[in-house]
Design a protein around this nucleic acid. Structure first.
Length: 293
DNA sequence: GGCCGCCTGAGC
DNA sequence: GCTCAGGCGGCC
């Protein structure tokens, strides 16, 4: 379900509810969500661990224990993480419950069961959030135009697809790639090797701007979070283009278009995000074999 | 590059 | 009944 801003919202809500608590019994109702190690060992290792803090890297959350062990997870499409009192009725599709020392429970609910948990013991290499697995955070100063250009400038894939590559930038998914490209004024189907220096500049500044804006717009109280069962976020109504095909562009009023790009539904403004911007004509010269008018 | 699998549910 | 969904890995 969530992208970086939503995962950060979950982290901020849960940290004060989890820090300092010790894990008691561990109940796994569906072993397929446990990616590492085997469910039996996973449960045994987890029991008795005291939670120090929760961090986020890209779309991954990590519970850090005082022992030095860590529990990392990814919510994928429909994962929900909730802290609630032991007596509350179980939501359908609850797959994991950790009882906490304050008589609350940390519950993992996931309709589609795409989400995954990994437990790493102290000293064990984290294969998920290491440097070769995840690129910089969107707010990392390294993410300037020259970084993007040197990393992507020769690629023939679309810029939208490359923004989804977690090794390039961590945390961007289908909503925020559309939002970022709208703010940057770049057509989502533009090939990376056709982007100009000015495009890379606007993209570099749009990435942190839009992500920070998303985190800010997501802010909510723990009560609101629980009421929305951890799946309703506040920013949806503020998104500029995502899910708004047919509606007027917030900048120019033209109807927003929807198109499948890189296999993902994409929404953009045909006027503000031109597929062939003026001045890019020389980039459209095709070799003879391509001309099949 | 595109397609499929993994899953269930919402909306049409 | 069909299509689609905010993710990601794998396959050809």
């Amino acid at each position: 379900m969530p992208e970086l801003p939503e995962v950060e919202t979950v982290r901020r809500i849960l940290e004060p509810q989890l820090a300092g608590r010790t894990v008691g019994t561990v109940e796994v109702y569906n072993e397929q969500i446990i990616a590492h190690p085997k469910a039996e060992l996973f449960m045994a290792l987890l029991q008795g661990q005291t939670i120090q803090k929760i961090s986020r890297r890209g779309k991954f959350l990590t519970l850090h224990f005082e022992s030095g062990d860590r529990l990392s997870l990814h919510l994928r499409m429909t994962g929900q993480l909730l802290v609630m009192p032991k007596g509350e009725p179980l939501e359908k599709h609850t797959h994991l419950i950790l009882s906490l020392s304050d008589s609350n429970q940390l519950r993992y609910i996931d309709v589609r069961r795409f989400g995954r948990f990994w437990y790493f013991q102290k000293g064990e290499t984290d294969t998920l959030t290491g440097q070769d697995a995840l690129g910089p955070e969107p707010t990392d100063p390294i993410l300037a135009a020259d970084y993007l250009k040197s990393k992507l400038g020769r690629r023939k894939k679309t810029i939208k697809e490359m923004l989804h590559d977690q090794t390039v930038v961590a945390g961007i998914g289908n909503i925020y790639s559309d939002e970022i490209l709208f703010v940057a004024g770049i057509y989502p189907g533009a090939k990376c090797d056709a982007l100009s220096d000015a495009d890379w500049e606007r993209l570099a500044s749009a990435i942190p701007e839009v992500i920070l804006w998303g985190i800010d717009a997501d802010q909510m109280t723990p009560e609101e979070y629980l009421r929305g069962k951890g799946k309703e976020y506040r920013n949806a109504e503020h998104l500029r283009v995502y899910g708004r095909a047919g509606q007027p562009c917030p900048a120019c009023g033209e109807a927003l278009c929807r198109k499948v790009i890189g296999g993902r539904s994409s929404t953009y403004c045909p006027n503000c995000q031109k597929a062939f911007p003026a001045g890019a004509g020389s980039l459209q010269v095709k070799s003879q074999g391509d001309n099949q008018a």
